[in-house]
Amino acid sequence: MKPLLTYTLRQGDRALILAQRLLETITHAPEIEEDMALSNLALDLIGQARALYTYVAEIEGDIDGAVRDENHYAYCREQHEFQNPLLVEQPNGDFAQIIVRQFLHDAYAFPYWRVMQHSTDETLAAIAAKSVKETAYHLRHSRSWLVRLGDGTDESHRRAQAAVDQMWRYTGELFETDEVEQALVSASIAFDPDELRNTWLHTVAGTLTEATLEMPDDVVMQNGGRSGRHSESFSRLIGELQVLARAHPGATW
């Protein structure tokens, strides 16, 4: 049960932390339509995180008998207990960085959820069947923006390329595997991330070409998210996410 718990928690953290970053952009997007789009992406991701955390609460409850809910995992854990990949916690920066981070994530999340529909774990398969449809729209959106930025003006091209160069080092971690994941792969609960990497690379390479952007090479990949080692800005993100729940435990509307 423990590997399933950790694995599901990681996926929930990936969705929640990216959602929190997107929510920081509300009222700061370049146009009102994009403000709505980014907050809608965030809403979908929060919905996915809720479903995943609810399942985590169920698994953990079966192990120790304690009653927890989804909020426990979002609001009552310390920073080092979050196991999201570093990519999704990267600060927003300019619009190109927001879009590139989103695209590199969505190009992973879409094929991830598609294959997870075939998980032998019924709950994960059900969450996947729901999430894959939403994520298909996320990928369409972030992909079309990346093409517009890359194949746009000199300035948008320059910023898009800088963002790709900046974010690339965080993409290797998406496909890393460890004993937690291997245990689930052998039970067909999860799937080999290497195959996912090929699909991801295909989407990313095609889109970068269309966007007249270059794929970075020889980049030393950063990792640590899944062992709880986060970047400095992560503490401020968690501070803002948890401040209300910490100051007023159990508060409701």
Binding site: E33, N40, R140
Partner: peptide, 9 residues
């Protein structure tokens, strides 16, 4: 198309 998203997802 103006945006892939509107007032709701």
């Amino acid at each position: 198309l103006i945006s892939h998203f509107g007032g709701t997802a």
